[in-house]
């Protein structure tokens, strides 16, 4: 099942993992009393990595479709759209790491 549906799911799966991870880092940083600067840097780096990974996934998906040429399926093409949407979602949902107070 996943063998065929992955193009549709992978972009947002990366988003979901990153979302969970950032939320956990935010919580743990406060719990363990990290220095605010270090906490902020970790969060921003995490968000940047997540966005970079999603872009990487998109590049791979586009390359995959190019390589397959006419053999690429509808799922591959729709999957590209889903990953683009996931990247946009990552940029917007992770933007608060730049600004918002992490522990108050």
């Amino acid at each position: 099942m996943i063998r065929h549906l992955w193009p549709l799911l992978i972009g947002f799966s990366v988003w979901a993992l990153a979302f969970t991870a950032l939320y956990a880092v935010q919580y743990l940083g406060c719990y363990l009393g990290w220095a605010p600067q270090a906490h902020r840097v970790t969060l921003v780096a995490g968000a940047a990595i997540a966005i970079a990974v999603s872009v990487g996934v998109l590049v791979l998906q586009i390359a995959h479709v190019r390589r397959l040429g006419p053999a690429s399926t509808f799922m591959h093409r729709v999957g590209i759209g889903a990953t683009v949407a996931a990247i946009a979602a990552a940029i917007i949902t992770f933007a608060p790491v730049l600004l918002a107070s992490a522990c108050t």
Binding site: F12, S13, W15, A16, F19, L22, Y23, Q26, Y27, C30, L43, A86, A89, I92, T93, F94, A95, P96, V97, L99, A100, S101, A102, C103, T104
Partner: peptide, 26 residues
């Protein structure tokens, strides 16, 4: 996918740090 990332908006007043609120608000 997004609908699993916004449950905390029912909990905006329970005293969660602003950054977490920011994620879920966005």
């Amino acid at each position: 996918f997004l609908s699993f990332g916004l449950w905390v908006h029912h909990m905006f007043t329970v005293g969660i740090p602003h950054l977490a609120l920011g994620f879920f608000s966005a």
